[in-house]
Amino acid sequence: MSSDSSATSAPRTCRLIYKSQTSWDLLSNESLLELAESSAVRNGEDDITGLLVLSGEAFLQVLEGPVDPVNDLYLKISRDTRHGSLRLLTYEPITERLFKDWAMHVVDLHDLPLAQREFLAGKYPSGEDSIAIPDDDRLALSLLLDARQITLSETDRGGG
């Protein structure tokens, strides 16, 4: 019985993935850098990890962490006027984080090297010089994992 009570007292962890359209004032590299830095500090304090992908004017973000802080952050995002057409793609309990590398990291797909952009464009729908953010939760997670892997590979090679 004691293992059951310890399991219920352990913090519940979740993964939340959403997509949205961004306002123009958030598209500059300076604005994105400021967002990533301030989010990393707050998310680190709340034990939230994740990745934000920008493709054209669309965001795709994954948040992982304790249920209450993740829920509070998503509520804050839903009220943020810099996000439009917000759509929750998935929300699920998890036992292991897939995006534990960063409290927050931003990947602008347009800034990736050509070979990586072409790889993503061949795997995901694309048009107008950007990768389309999928509506399907499995494809969205796949795109996030690809962006994570590309970023980690570039870091390992000294690219950032």
Rank of each mutant, 00 (worst) to 15 (best):
V41R: 12
W102G: 02
S28A: 06
R79H: 10
G122L: 08
L144Y: 00
L27H: 14
V62Q: 00
D108P: 14
E30P: 06
A147T: 08
A40W: 00
L33E: 15
D25E: 15
V106W: 06
I131S: 01
S142Y: 04
Q21M: 08
G127F: 02
G160E: 14
T151D: 00
G160H: 15
G158Q: 04
S28M: 01
K76M: 02
L16H: 05
Q116D: 11
L52V: 12
L88H: 12
N71H: 04
R42I: 06
S20F: 04
R117F: 11
N71T: 06
K100E: 04
R117Q: 12
L32E: 11
S3Q: 03
L60F: 05
R15S: 10
C14H: 01
G50F: 00
R138I: 11
I133W: 01
L144K: 02
H105F: 09
G160L: 11
E37V: 01
Y124S: 03
T13F: 06
L26N: 15
L27S: 13
F59I: 13
S9G: 11
R157Y: 12
V53M: 04
L112K: 05
R15A: 02
L32F: 00
R148T: 08
S6L: 13
L86S: 07
S5N: 05
L144R: 00
Y124D: 04
G44P: 01
A140M: 06
L143V: 15
S5A: 03
A103W: 00
T81I: 13
H105S: 09
T49L: 04
E128H: 09
I131R: 06
A132T: 07
L75M: 08
N43Y: 08
D46H: 13
P113D: 08
S5I: 10
D4A: 09
T90E: 15
E118Q: 13
I131E: 06
N29A: 05
N71C: 11
Q149G: 01
S85E: 14
P113H: 07
T155A: 08
T90W: 06
H110K: 15
L89F: 05
A40H: 01
A7V: 07
L16E: 03
L143F: 05
L88C: 15
K19A: 06
V53G: 03
V53D: 09
R148Q: 13
D68L: 12
S31T: 08
F59D: 03
L52E: 05
R138M: 11
L52C: 14
K100P: 03
S28H: 12
C14W: 02
L89P: 02
R82T: 11
K100D: 14
L89Q: 09
Y74A: 04
E128A: 14
S153F: 08
R42H: 08
